[in-house]
Every structure is written in C-alpha cells, then in structure tokens.
Write a protein that binds this DNA or RNA. Structure first.
Lengths: 349, 349
DNA sequence: CGCCTTGATGTTACCGTTAACATTCGCGCC
DNA sequence: GGCGCGAATGTTAACGGTAACATCAAGGCG
C-alpha cells in the first residue's frame, strides 16, 4: 500500500534560499554573553529582586541586544504553570459573551495570564475541544453553561485545576459557578407582560440551552395564570435582527391574535419591532415587545426596548477572581455566585 | 542519599482536606502498564500507522483506562511545533472581525491548530502583547492592520514564523497579507453619493486607523469635485447604534444643511436612520444614508441599508490557508491578496 | 544461503527552562 | 577569632514528551 499522497507532514527542505530559521537565542546564549549562569539570567528576568542590580542590568542589556525571547513552553513544563486560562464559549457573535470575555481577559492579563479562547460552536464538540485544551496544561478553565457531557466532567475533575462554569446556575457545579437563573428571567419577563394586562402573547425565541430555560420559566408563569402562548416561533442560534423580523412574520401568518411578543434576545426584539412598524403596528399600542440582554442599542431604539439587563462584566470579572483565588491556593469567597438580573422597563411594553 | 522517596513536600498552607493534586499520568506510566516503551505509546497516539494493530489497541485501552492526557507543552518543546496560531485583533465586539475569526479558527482546527486570540484593545498594547505571545512559540501569527511599531516588526521577523497581516493593504507587508483597500472603499462610497446627486454630505465616522483611511479616500473624491463635507462627527471606536443616533443629532445641531450622511460602519448608519426617522426625516427622500460592512441587519432595516460588503469569511480563510502553506514549507500562491469589496445599493440612498 | 529491505519496537539524548540544593563571600556580633 | 546568617550566584537534575538512531525478526531475491 503506497503512502497516502494527501498527508505530507515532512515537507522537503523546501525553498533552498530560505533563511533556514536561524537557531533561536536561548537563555544559555544570553548567560554566556553576560558572563553569568543560566539560572541567573532566569532570575534576573523573572525575579529581579534576587539578583544584584549590576548583574540585573548587565543581563537586561544582553537580552535587549540579542532579542532573546524566553521559551514559555519550556518554563511551563518545569514549573507546571502554563499561565494560560482556557475559556470555552459557544460563539463570539453574541455580544453578551463578548463583554464578559473582555472583562475576563482584562482582569487575567493584569495577573499575567493569557486567555485561550475555545469556540464550541456545536454542543458535541465541547468534549473534544476540552480534551485538546487540557493537554496544553491550562491553569484554569472557564465554561459557558452548566450542562456538560459526563466524560467532560470526569476529565475536568481529573485535571485537578480550577473550573468556573458561567451564565447559568445549578446546585451542583463541577467546581465553581457564576451566573444567574434563566428560569427566573423567563418568569420575570412573563410576569411583566401579565402585569401590563397582556393575555395573548407570542414568542420569538431561539433554541439554545439557556434560552430554553428562560422559555420554561416564562411558560410556567403563564401556565400559573392558565394561559398558553398564542403562538411560538422557535429558531436556531444565533439570534439576529433578520430572524426577529421573520419571527414576527411567522407569528402573524399563524392567524392567531396576540398583543405582546416576548423575545429570547434583544436583536430578535429589534427585528420584531422593525417588522411590526413596517406593517403599521404601533408599539406598544398594538403590540408590546420585550427582549433580553440590554444590549447597547436597547435604550436607543424607537420606542426604547423593554428588556432584561445582565451584568456581563461582573460575570467575567467574578469568574476571573474566583479562578485567581483558587490558583493562589485561597478559597474563593463563595463557590456559587448569582449575579442576578433586572427587568428594565422602557417604552416598548 | 538517604532521601525519602516520598514526593510532594506540599506547602503547609492549603486546605488540609484538598485532593493534593495527584501526580498526573505520564506517557511512561501508560507505557509501563501496556508493557511497551514510551516511544511506542507516543507513536500509537500520534502516528498509529507506525505501530502494529495489536499494540495500538492495547495502548489505546490503557490510555482510556488511565485517563492519560498527553502534555502538549512537553511535546512542543521537543518538536518545536506548538500547534498554536496567534491572532491579534483590536476588539471582538466588531462583528466583521468575529466572522473572520470564526472562519480562521474553523479552518485551522481542521489541521489541528489552536487559535490563541490576543486582544490589543489599545494600540500601545500590541507590542507588549506580541512579545508575550511569541514566547509561547506560535507556529504562525495573524495581525489586524498593517501599521505596527518598528519594534514589533523586528520581533516578528526575528521569530522566523509566518505572519499574515489582514484587513488592509500595503505594498510592504511584514510577510504575507490579505485585505482590501480602505481608501478605495471610502472613494467608492463618495462616488456613490455623488452619482446620486448629493453635494451636501455629512459624515458620522469613527477614528480607528482603518476608518481614517476610508475617510481619506472619501474626502479625496469629494475634493475632486470641489466639495467639502458639510459637517463631520468623529467618535472613538467601537461604532455602535447609539453613537450613530448621537452622531446625526450633532450634525443637525451644527445647523449645516446636508442631504446625505456617510457612516464608517453599519451600526452607526442604523443609528443615524433611527434618529432621522424619529425627527420625521424621510429616508432617502430627505436624507440618504450609506454604511460599511454589510452586517446581517443591513438588508433588513427599513429602508434597507446601502452599504459596502466585505467578504470577511474569505479574509479569515485565506489567511488560514496562507499560514498553513508557509508552515508546510510551501510558498503561498500570492503573498498579497486583495479580497476587494462591493458597494451594495439598497433603499437608503 | 547470505544480503538487503521493511516493519515493529527500543535506547538515548535532548528540547529550554527552573526547582532544589550547594557554594561562596562579606558582615555583624559575642 | 569563630560563628551564624543572608545575599548572590552556581550546579544538577528534572519537567514529559519525541527526534534520531539502533536493534531485531521476518521475508524477498539473486
């Protein structure tokens, strides 16, 4: 059997005239030039207070001159600290996540950690992704959501590193948790609409795991008043403006009557409003609309959007703090943090 | 040496009842259990075709049973291949970037590479960020933009790894390049408005480096017709819906007359439209609006937004291809790729 | 039948850094 | 003057893989 032609891991030496990747400068090269031992260079860079000022200066000069860049991989291997925190998100197209990522990254960078972002677009990829990432010896892991394959759980526990789950609540996290109750959010949205006198309610929703929790909370409250939603349009993530338009169009096509539409996220709500206005419906007169997320535009649409606000930055920062605490050997104040949420009443309902 | 064979002296501080981080399973542990040498385990996992089926199976079983996770750091140190591609972006809140990131990540993952995302929110951080990342021995780097500190250039060249710059063009990239001409985009936007008969034009723009290039192209074309913009509102990134509203409000406060507004990005344009409609202006009758980016909502606003479309996915994927080619020792087809753009005429102009 | 080839596996050393322990030296103090 | 001590620096040996080369048995072939 001839060798597969597709795989070519060992390319020939390639373009002959290539620079040939000069052997990189190592700590020993620097040491030799500076007339000290390797360990002294290491100290001068990592723990300068252990080295005399003159030596420190001499080493720094040589480093600058030679362009020495320490090989973090080698250092990590020896110290067993990679300086990497892995963060797994289902998507970065979701503005909510983005803000949390930014806060997390910022805080961790202050402490010298780098964030390795893993995108698990599809549920079943999460395990594979995490398996690959654990080999990189992260010092901590942040997960989005609380439902993970049992295999994933096992792996993470076996890895003996701090784990923070986010964006949701559960009484039994793998390790630590910072999030809020999506069911309560859904319930609050429903209560808000009921309080406004709505009885005929449509849903434009998407079907990711956490949105489904919000929907459950929403439906339970409705059911408590003996109400079923008039119509529901359920689509796949991500939730976008055009999907919101299409969602309302579908609800209207159903022929059912409704005076309010609840949406699983603000872009959907924005789309619903646009579609409604195009059809001459007045908001909130003819149709009330409520969203989720309080994204930047929510306060500035016409009419301004009633929605549910989440402190995304707090999630990112708290998660960072908890990981840092654990890494440092301290116990985090609480293992489970509920950041809560707030219904923000604006003009659209 | 009468040293006790016991391991961990264990810092006296930690919680007494903690698991004490059992020593992780190494390749030698697996080898011992499977009754083979370490290198055979290594081969069974990384290049199974070199190992007999029986051995392969035996090793796999032991790996599964012990939960062995190869230490990628150690492997990378020896092979000098980290399997990491670093990608530096100024922000992830920009949808354009997000789509490119996603395409890049996807393609690279197919080849077994992991993307290390670096966020250089502030210009001056880029160098620092890259310095830190180079120590992780990435196999390639993607940069956003083409203007970098000289120190950064030097470092990257010294690192002897493939570099792709993106989102812009320059005749002298560090290594490879895939982007488009922002000046031409600006010029095309201006030409579009001029062709529609507009002579009094306002700008709602933001001031990141590439937006400035688009503005320059825009102004040059106007100047070619002896025109200056009626008014300009220049704000900091990121470009958001509320900033668009505020932008138009400012232009109107200036008292200048204008029949069209050009925006440096679609969210700004959407905000401008919202503000205009709130003030009873008809679009495009009283005011024409053009944006940039062709984000998902652009085709679905009312009226639909005239904008400039960029093939973000192509940027991500081409960049990935170029890096992969270089890593494999092949020359990329072209070192400089212009993905172009297209003015998409819709109802708002 | 001996030589060469191929496939399967093993041995050794090394990747670049730093933990752990060792050494040296100067200085204060009894 | 001897001792202890801390500051500055050095030596050695990992960390956990895999490249490079070595070994060995089984077969092909003139």
């Amino acid at each position: 059997m001839a060798k597969s032609p597709s795989r070519k891991p060992r390319a020939a030496k390639g373009a002959a005239a290539r620079p040939a990747a000069a052997k990189p400068v190592t700590i020993r090269d620097v040491a030799k030039v500076a007339g000290v031992s390797a360990i002294t260079v290491s100290r001068a860079l990592a723990r300068p207070e252990l080295v005399s000022p003159q030596t420190r200066e001499r080493v720094r000069a040589v480093v600058a001159r030679t362009g020495y860049v320490p090989n973090v991989l080698a250092g990590s291997l020896r110290t067993r600290r990679s300086g990497i925190i892995a963060a797994i998100f289902p998507q970065v197209s979701n503005t909510l996540f983005v803000e949390a990522i930014q806060a997390l990254t910022e805080r961790l960078r202050e402490e010298g950690y780098q964030v390795l972002l893993g995108l698990s677009s599809y549920e079943r990829r999460e395990d594979e992704l995490i398996a690959g990432i654990l080999g990189r010896q992260p010092d901590g892991i942040l997960l989005t959501g609380v439902s993970h394959a049992p295999e994933t759980r096992r792996r993470l526990i076996a890895a003996h590193i701090p784990v923070v789950e986010t964006w949701d609540l559960t009484p039994s996290p793998i390790d630590m948790l910072v999030g809020f109750s999506h069911e309560k959010v859904g319930a609050a949205m429903a209560r808000h609409l009921l309080a406004r006198g709505h009885r005929d309610i449509g849903l434009v929703w998407n079907n990711d795991a956490r949105a489904e929790l919000r929907r459950r909370g929403f439906l339970e409250v409705l059911a408590g008043s003996g109400i079923e939603p008039a119509a529901t349009c359920l689509g796949p993530a991500p939730a976008t403006f055009p999907r919101g338009r299409e969602g309302l169009a579908q609800l209207l096509r159903s022929g059912k009557r409704f005076t309010a539409v609840a949406c699983s996220s603000d872009p959907l709500a924005q789309g619903v409003i646009a579609e409604a206005q195009d059809r001459g419906l007045r908001i909130p007169g003819d149709l009330a609309v409520i969203g989720f997320g309080d994204l930047d535009f929510a306060a500035h649409t016409t009419p301004a959007l009633t929605t549910v606000g989440i402190d995304k930055v707090a999630i990112g920062r708290r998660a960072a703090e908890m990981l840092l605490a654990r890494i440092a050997g301290r116990e985090p104040g609480e293992r489970i943090v509920d950041v809560g949420f707030a219904v923000i009443e604006r003009a659209s309902t």
